[in-house]
């Protein structure tokens, strides 16, 4: 994909920084090629259970290289969080360029557990929603286990809604089955809400009459 859309995907540089209560600082930025080695170390350090959430086994160098190649080809965009020299979280948006769901993208995000709850996921997801906006996508989805309540709460605060539950759709490391939840953010709908808000506040009589 080498088009205007591809140009929109060429994002680089810092996004934000977060100061943690323990004095550490986390820098959030767009993925760059030089992050590849640290990304591999990040994936390899993740608990095995958390790695099941990822689309592929990126602890394998060859598979990670393929993922990075996909990023260069515009099949996805990635944001990484760094604490010092180490990557401690990432959020990737995968695009579906062909077929029925070409107006939809999918997010996957993983943050090392000790760094959860500091707003890193929110920062990364908000940036990805803007990417989806820029690309004119209608919908961003996230798949997660039904028992991941805190992640669902974060997504709801960012405009995602629980759209479907796939029963016994995920298998954990111990072989237990779990329900999978699909949460959706109707990106275009968000801006319709903004438009509605402006119209309602500017012209209450007119909107009441509708």
């Amino acid at each position: 994909m080498k088009s205007n859309k591809h140009q929109l995907l060429l994002r680089s540089g810092p996004i934000s920084s977060v100061d943690l209560p323990d004095g550490k600082r986390v820098d959030v930025s767009w993925f760059k090629d030089g992050d590849r080695k640290d990304l591999l170390a990040f994936y390899r350090d993740l608990p095995a259970e958390d790695r099941l959430y990822l689309r592929s086994d990126v602890t394998n160098q060859a598979i990670l290289d393929r993922l990075v190649d996909e990023l260069h080809e515009g099949i996805g965009v990635m944001i990484v969080c760094r604490e010092g020299a180490a990557i401690i979280g990432e959020c990737t948006q995968h695009f579906i360029h062909h077929g029925w769901s070409r107006h939809v993208s999918e997010l996957r995000h993983v943050v090392r557990r000790e760094f959860e709850g500091h707003g890193l996921e929110e920062i990364m997801i908000k940036e990805h929603i803007e990417v989806a906006n820029d690309l004119g996508l209608d919908k961003v989805i996230v798949r997660l286990l039904e028992l991941q309540k805190e992640k669902q709460r974060i997504l709801e605060s960012l405009g995602f809604e629980r759209e479907a539950v796939l029963r016994s759709h995920a298998t954990d490391l111990r072989g237990a089955r779990h329900n999978m939840v699909i949460m959706s953010n109707y990106v275009a709908e968000l801006w319709r809400r903004m438009e509605d808000l402006m119209r309602k506040t500017d012209m209450p009589a007119e909107t009441d009459a509708q």
Partner: peptide
């Protein structure tokens, strides 16, 4: 004041 999800761009 703005709808959730639109904060960043606003």
């Amino acid at each position: 004041m703005v709808p959730p999800g639109t904060e960043t761009l606003n």
